[in-house]
Nucleic acid binder design. Structure first.
Lengths: 116, 116
DNA sequence: TCCTTATATCGATGAATGTCAATCTACGTA
DNA sequence: TACGTAGATTGACATTCATCGATATAAGGA
């Protein structure tokens, strides 16, 4: 994420003016895509929705496996992706694991789209 | 894949209350994920960025193949995905094709994340 | 200590996806 | 009409990803 400015090939063919100077760089795009990929899955969207609309002290995994009709390992896998991308936080209380939304993470993810 | 409302298993184990009632449904999640998938790719993010910061009357393909260091068929393929998902509009003028942002499409895509 | 329950991890598999080379279509021009 | 160029389409290939069964870990209870 250092020099994001591109060479801006001055096309001689006469079709196009020049590459716009403030276009998103390669590294920046890669990082943004990684977070957006975490959200761009129907089952993970539903997981986020359930957690968001659930109790503020967290939603446990047993409340997530039922609605999605997926196996427990699969749900755990999706939850890991959401935690690794900074969207969900995991807290273990006793035998159970509770997931909560990371405060402004969804807002920040949305801004990756609006602030191109 | 017919009845999207699930039995909402009233778990007897004492761990969890019940499935939250206003969670996103299966069909809704699938549709949202389809649009978000279109955005969740580094090269497509850069395409959107270039078009957004480009001239208001559209950016032609020859201005898009250069910065991305991808072959012309690959760029065309990504552009098709963005058009099919309603984010970009294509207009052919003469030999060239010009792409523009569909007015509030990016905003709407972002709201798919914030309004879960 | 043994057993049960909740969750995570591992390995395999089939499907979806990004990329390219080759080809096709449409338009402009000599 | 023939040629050159811009862009889209097709088919193939490699990679990534979602899912599952089996297993591991960890905590609580008998």
């Amino acid at each position: 994420m250092t020099a994001t400015s591109l060479p801006s090939s001055t096309d001689e063919s006469g079709c196009c003016p020049t590459t716009s100077p403030q276009a998103m760089g390669e590294a920046e795009a890669l990082q943004a895509a990684q977070i957006l990929k975490a959200v761009a899955d129907p089952n993970r969207l539903r997981l986020l929705s359930i957690v968001k609309n659930g109790p503020s002290d967290g939603t446990c995994v047993c409340d997530l496996t039922g609605p999605l009709q997926l196996g427990q390992p699969t749900v755990s896998h999706h939850l890991k992706i959401l935690v690794d991308s900074g969207l969900l936080a995991r807290e273990k209380r006793g035998t159970w694991a509770y997931y909560t939304l990371v405060p402004h993470a969804l807002q920040k993810a949305a801004e990756l789209i609006t602030e191109l």
